[in-house]
């Protein structure tokens, strides 16, 4: 388990997410965690990060955490307030560097499910569906996925429904399906660690463990085998300044980050 104390797990994950985003790049964000992470990145090491919202907000200076990716906060002091056709076309044409999404279920190739648990036509649990996720994962150069609760229920051998493309069934599959070249999953963040994908097999591979987490915990909380690097790093920890920004400036109502 992640050692909580100075920070809680959700704050830690937002910090890890922020650290993956680079200055002077574009990031297309989904609801919740991805927005918090992008806001933190913008307020720390990446002030010129351009945040893109699917409903039309381009490059806003977010004054507070938006509840929806289409509300007025998402185009507050933005460089442009246009339309979904515009943001999705820019994405398809190659203008998006990072895609950042949450997910309910993921497999070893970074494919994700946010549509149903159980059978599609008679679902045990109906989830929201793709939303913009399929599009973001199809068009972004580097896709970041956050799953706050890694377990055998969320890291699965076979998805109940493949909503959003990762590397599909392995190397070359995206290109064969017709998806744009040089796109696909880049990093996965869970409460246990930070992961990437093995170059040859396009399978999930651990990069770093969060402080206090054991390799066994990572392995036990997955149906599929997670590849291990020769040397496992320890994830960086947020500074007090990062935590203050998260708590006071980004999510004072603790909606995403919790108390």
């Amino acid at each position: 388990m992640l050692t909580e104390g100075r920070y809680n797990t959700r704050e830690f994950l937002a910090f890890i997410g922020a650290g993956l985003l680079e200055d002077k790049k574009t990031v297309f964000v989904g609801t919740g965690f991805p927005i918090v992470a992008a806001m933190l990145a913008q307020k720390t090491h990446a002030p010129k990060l351009v945040i893109v919202f699917e409903a039309g907000g381009l490059g806003p200076q977010l004054p507070e955490l938006p509840v929806s990716v289409g509300e007025s906060r998402t185009f507050y002091h933005a460089v442009s307030a246009s339309s979904m056709h515009d943001t999705m076309s820019l994405s398809q044409a190659g203008y998006i560097d990072f895609g950042f999404l949450g997910a309910a279920q993921m497999d070893m190739h970074g494919n994700i499910n946010t549509t149903v648990i159980g059978d599609h036509d008679k679902p045990t649990s109906r989830l929201p569906g793709s939303g913009g996720a399929n599009d973001v994962a199809s068009f972004s150069r580097k896709l970041i996925i956050i799953i706050a609760k890694q377990s055998k229920r969320t890291f699965v051998n076979k998805l109940d429904f493949l909503t959003t493309p990762g590397f599909l069934d392995g190397p070359g599959a995206r290109e064969k399906a017709g998806l744009p070249a040089s796109t696909g999953p880049y990093r996965v963040i869970t409460q246990f660690g930070l992961f990437g994908f093995d170059d040859k097999t396009k399978r999930l591979k651990l990069i770093s463990l969060h402080p206090g987490v054991s390799v066994d915990e990572v392995k036990e909380n997955s149906q599929f085998e997670i590849l291990m690097p020769d040397r496992i790093e320890t994830s960086l920890e947020p500074s007090d300044k990062d935590l203050t920004i998260l708590r006071r400036e980004i999510d004072p109502a603790a909606i995403v980050l919790g108390k």
């Binding site: 999705m88 398809q92 494919n111 549509t115 599609h120 569906g129 793709s130 399929n134 599009d135 199809s138 068009f139 998805l159 429904f161 493949l162 909503t163 959003t164 493309p165 599909l168 599959a173 995206r174 064969k176 399906a177 017709g178 998806l179 744009p180």
Partner: peptide, 18 residues
């Protein structure tokens, strides 16, 4: 024409054609 929905169940359950 578009380059999304490809390779996924979302595409397979859509009304699109590849």
């Amino acid at each position: 024409p578009s380059r999304n929905l490809l390779g996924t169940d979302t595409g397979d359950y859509s009304s699109c054609k590849v």
